[in-house]
Amino acid sequence: MKLHLKYSLIPALVFTAGGAYAAEIYNKEGHKLELNGTLAGVHYFKSDNSNSDQSYMRLGFLGETQINSQLTGYAQWQHQAQLDRGEKDEARESTTRLGFVGLKFAHYGSFDYGRNWGVLYDVLSYTDKLPEFGGDAFGVDDYMSQRASNLATYRNKGFFGLVDGLDVALQYQGVNTPGKKDSKGRADHAANGSGYGMSIEYDLGRGFKAAGAFSSSGRSDGQKKMEYGSGDGRVNAYSGALKYSDKNLYLAMMYTQSYNLAQFGDFKKSESDKISGFAHKAQTLEMVAQYLFDFSLTPSLAYIQTMASDIEKYGRQDLRKYIDIGAAYNFNKNMAAHIDYKINLLSGNTFTDRAQIKRDNTAAVGLTYQF
């Protein structure tokens, strides 16, 4: 979910220079620092009665320094803390979402390094606009599909000043190895080999934009040995999207074909009757429609599906399939409320049971403050 207080069209708190929802706390002699944050009270109601508190807080900053007339330095950091945990709970969840530093060279582009958004998300973000759900085709630290670590990214807007509306990005990701059993390192399923990717976006005019991206990475040794998703293949993904937006209407469609990227199951549980792994091949289709009324209400309708076409012993299986109906209401630029209802279309079978894929309908209600 990426809720925007004006209109659910861009990821919340993914700020660029001069972000509209940031508090400027310093701006002098070419140095600028902006503080941004979100506090959301969110509750889930599920058809199986496993209701839950999903509240969270995010805090971040964006810094800029003008080195000379052609060169600008910048840095961004964002942290998130879950609010559903007790103060004595040792499992309190707190994590760094973003943290990178870079240089911008006039119209020659920018280069940064750190924990950032992968280039695949340049395309996946077209449909990651639902009031609460969505954005779940691939998770964080899944190679270059969402937020990830060890990313070196080059971006160029306007193609060196030669083609208005043509933006390109090149990205390299270094190896993130799993930690040892007695360490606090990342789990093996969240590890990755080195890889590269690129994205391209073009403004077609009249409110239309198109984007495409691909990535290719080596797999970790542990992933190659898993019962489901074994082998020496690479992790590859190809994604394309088209969107239309004007003052009130937003329409988008995204399609991704991935190899050894789509995950299923709970990797943390080790019961003998449960399974987890990677789909050798999967297709993801997402379609979103939203409309902003003049009285600040934005209804939202979406169809989301990821189908794995090659899983050991199970062949073709849906990993997720649902219709999403929701709405967001903006009280002003800082305060919003939303409701979102996920109608699950998955059918139960041996695979969904063993992979612990949820089939319940879920409603979410939330109130968000953002600056």
Rank of each mutant, 00 (worst) to 15 (best):
S145H: 08
S230C: 00
Q223V: 13
Y369G: 09
F15A: 10
Y329Q: 01
F331T: 04
E24V: 14
A302F: 01
L98Q: 10
G277F: 06
I200L: 09
D294I: 09
K209E: 02
E93H: 14
V163T: 14
L59R: 09
G240S: 09
Y74W: 09
A237D: 12
S50L: 10
S245I: 12
A152E: 01
G165K: 04
S230E: 04
G218S: 07
K28W: 06
L345S: 04
Q370D: 03
T38Q: 13
G165W: 08
K268L: 06
D167G: 05
E93K: 12
T72C: 01
S245F: 13
A364G: 11
S194G: 04
A190V: 11
G265W: 07
G179A: 04
A169D: 01
V288L: 02
S347H: 15
I67G: 05
M335N: 08
A191G: 05
T127A: 03
Y121H: 11
G37W: 01
V140L: 12
F371Q: 02
K104Y: 06
G179M: 06
Y244E: 02
L124C: 03
K6I: 07
Y7K: 15
S309P: 06
G326M: 05
G218A: 05
G37T: 03
M307R: 14
K313Y: 15
Y121Q: 06
S215P: 02
L251A: 11
A336T: 11
L35H: 13
F331V: 14
L3R: 15
N330Y: 12
S258P: 05
A327P: 04
E132C: 09
Y329H: 09
I200V: 10
S347Y: 02
G195Q: 10
N344D: 03
G102V: 00
V288G: 00
K342H: 11
L33K: 12
G326V: 08
G277R: 04
G240M: 11
F371T: 03
A279G: 06
D340N: 12
N156M: 10
D360N: 15
G60D: 02
K281C: 02
N334Q: 10
Y303Q: 01
E271P: 04
Y196P: 07
Q257D: 02
L204K: 03
P131F: 14
H338N: 11
Y369L: 03
M254C: 09
L166S: 13
A328Y: 12
Y255P: 00
Y259Q: 06
Q171R: 01
D266L: 15
G139W: 00
M307D: 02
I323A: 05
L367K: 10
N49W: 12
L71Y: 01
F159P: 09
S125L: 10
Q290I: 02
L170T: 07
V175P: 08
G197S: 05
N334E: 04
I339D: 00
D142M: 08
S50Y: 09
K225P: 12
A190M: 02
K269T: 14
N236Y: 08
Y26F: 14
S309A: 07
K104S: 10
Y26N: 00
N344A: 07
D318R: 10
K88S: 10
S94A: 13
E93L: 12
R354T: 04
Q173D: 00
G134M: 03
Q173Y: 05
N51V: 05
